[in-house]
Design a protein around this nucleic acid. Structure first.
Lengths: 199, 199
DNA sequence: ATCAGGTTAGGTCAATTGTCCTAGAGCGTC
DNA sequence: GACGCTCTAGGACAATTGACCTAACCTGAT
């Protein structure tokens, strides 16, 4: 499996380098050196830099879908599944403090570059939005489901930016606690509201 | 005033270009062309690219301080002053949707580049944090003042990233309404709490 | 008029960029 | 063995990058 392996390794390394150093600042030579192949060989797999970006975005889409499916299967209740998402901030806190959120920073950079792939990068964010919307809808918050999914996403993106700016690890932990509190508050509010309607 | 004028024009144009296109993606030639001078002339004013970045950050610090001073003078009450900050999202919504928040995106980019100026870029964010902390403290929220300033900043940064990703103008308006609601809620909560203590 | 200082233009420099080509190595099939 | 295919290496290519130099220019003081 030499074909698939090398191509996959290129995409994997490019993914990491795009995240840690940014798309624009990462060159062909950087990726080729990281993979351990020549720059000439690189062109055999990807004719242009935009093609690597497309492949990286596609890979991130796939992996995001897989992660969401895992959370869907593992979490017994919608609250547990949403907590899986929130817990991403803790799990990846070191990398988030150093490089920000992979999705958010890519969207921001491509927006500045007026790159055509910005729309597809935003679709990764859309995956989280739609999945979270489904969770809030499962909690009975039909009308407010998407708004709350967006609020949770917005909050998370803010935490990523702020923790990266101030390099404060305790900030992430405090915010995760606050987000969890907010989640439980609206769940409590929802169950009370349902009780008022039913009874 | 040829000296100051040209140098100021360079910093001003560089500021705009760094914001709209990013620091790394903006070249000497881009700035020189925007100002209308030769590249050689450029080097007389700034020996290295990092020097322009330093000047741009210093300029943003100054202008931020001036803006905060204006808000401090214009706003009769802390609530009005905080609303001035929140209203930035509305005033600059077109540019925020296209290029994100000037402060947040610069911090993120410099973090990825592991640039030494990242710390000073974060100080601009610190100006907002400290000023907002002062406003919440003026509202009597001594212990929670900084946490609430950070929360407001975090929320705003999240709105900037999300509105830029999805290019949704109505999202900004809805979030500004939600932030305003949150502000009035904690102010109400604070006045109730004060009444309980005093009476 | 002369001179000094700050300012500007144009051009050079090595290094790096993304793109592209060619020659050949490896390997399975006929 | 001969052929075809994918994969690889090494380099060439023009364009652009940040950095730097030198020769003029302007302006005001002497």
């Amino acid at each position: 499996m030499p074909t698939v392996s090398t191509r996959e390794k290129i995409i994997e390394k490019a993914d990491t380098l795009f995240y840690e150093g940014g798309f624009e600042a990462t060159s062909f030579a950087d990726i080729a050196a990281a993979v351990g192949i020549s720059r000439g060989n690189f062109y055999h797999h990807f004719k242009a830099k935009d093609e690597i970006l497309d492949a990286v975005i596609a890979r991130r889409m796939d992996r995001t879908r897989m992660m969401l499916d895992t959370w869907q299967a593992e979490g017994a209740q919608p609250r547990d599944r949403i907590l899986s998402f929130i817990h991403l901030l803790i799990t990846n806190r070191t990398r988030i403090m150093a490089f920000g959120c992979p999705v958010g920073t890519l969207c921001s950079e491509l927006a500045k570059l007026e790159h055509g792939a910005q729309h597809r990068a935003a679709q990764i964010m859309g995956l989280f939005r739609d999945w979270l919307t489904g969770q809030f809808r499962a909690l009975g918050m039909d009308q407010q489901a998407e708004a709350r999914a967006m609020h949770l996403l917005t909050w998370s993106q803010g935490v990523a930016v702020m923790s990266s700016a101030f390099r404060d690890e305790t900030f992430i932990e405090r915010e995760v606690a606050a987000i969890t509190q907010w989640l439980d508050d609206i769940i409590d509010d929802q169950t009370r509201h349902e009780g008022r309607i039913c009874s």
